[in-house]
Computed example of a mutant assay.
Amino acid sequence: MNNVPTSSQPERTYAPCVFVTDDDASVRDAIGFLLQSEQLDHLLCATADELLEMVSPQHRGCILLDVRMPGLDGLQAQQALNERGIRLPVIFISGHADISTAVRAVQAGALDFLEKPFDDELLLEKVRNALDLDQSDWENEHERDDIEQRIAALTPRERQVVEGILDCKLNKIIADDLDISVRTVEIHRANALDKLGARNSSEMIRMVLSSHSYRDWLL
């Protein structure tokens, strides 16, 4: 077993880890050996409860999850993960796979479904794809968080000017709506561009539209 990211190891909080959850010790050990041979950090869990104790929304990586286990089964564990805001890609593994179970898993957000016995190379391919997907999702979320912080730094007047730009209004129209001069609109626009780190209005619009803040503005 490799080192496991925990809250007491903040420098490893975001280190990618493969969480292997299966009640069959021989399966866990076999997958663990395979992951070790590829130098992939991993954690072996015998039950869904063990998994839920270890993983948090701050972790990065993916989850290999057996469908049939004592206590919480795989689908119940997946529901618990979703309820806790844990969005790591989930790959289900099962020796008793059926179409209805696979469909339910995918509908609940599972990335893939593999039936035992599975080919080692196929499993590694699925794991690498899941890790790549999680990395991409994490980078996008990190970028969105950064944009949110920049938007929060806008003054109320700068935000009003940005809203006018989003509505495709000319500076003169924005100035009339806000009862200020066109020059003042230009100053607020320049300040907003600077705070958001946007090179031009088009880039600023793209950044704002990708944010959660914009949805709040529409309410």
Rank of each mutant, 00 (worst) to 15 (best):
L114K: 07
R84W: 02
I91W: 13
D134N: 13
A108G: 01
L114I: 10
C168H: 15
A130W: 08
L88M: 10
G71R: 11
E158Q: 15
A77M: 04
F118D: 07
P70I: 04
A152C: 03
S100N: 10
G74C: 02
V106L: 15
R87G: 05
K126H: 09
E115G: 09
D120N: 15
S100R: 13
R104M: 09
A102I: 08
R128L: 05
Q107E: 13
R150S: 09
A105C: 09
F113M: 03
A152S: 13
W138T: 07
S136K: 14
D167M: 14
G95A: 15
A105P: 12
E141L: 12
D73H: 08
G95K: 13
L122M: 13
A110Y: 08
L75S: 05
S94C: 08
E148P: 11
P70R: 14
D176I: 13
A80V: 00
Q76G: 07
D194R: 13
I165M: 11
W138M: 04
A80M: 00
I180T: 04
G74Y: 08
A130G: 08
I147M: 03
A108M: 08
V161P: 10
E141A: 15
G74M: 02
D120G: 11
E163K: 15
I174Y: 10
A105M: 12
R87A: 11
D119L: 01
A153N: 11
K172I: 15
I180A: 01
A77N: 05
V162K: 04
R128C: 00
F113Q: 02
Q149V: 07
D132G: 06
K116N: 05
N140C: 04
L193W: 05
E115M: 12
L88R: 05
R183A: 12
D98E: 14
V185K: 01
D179Q: 12
K116E: 00
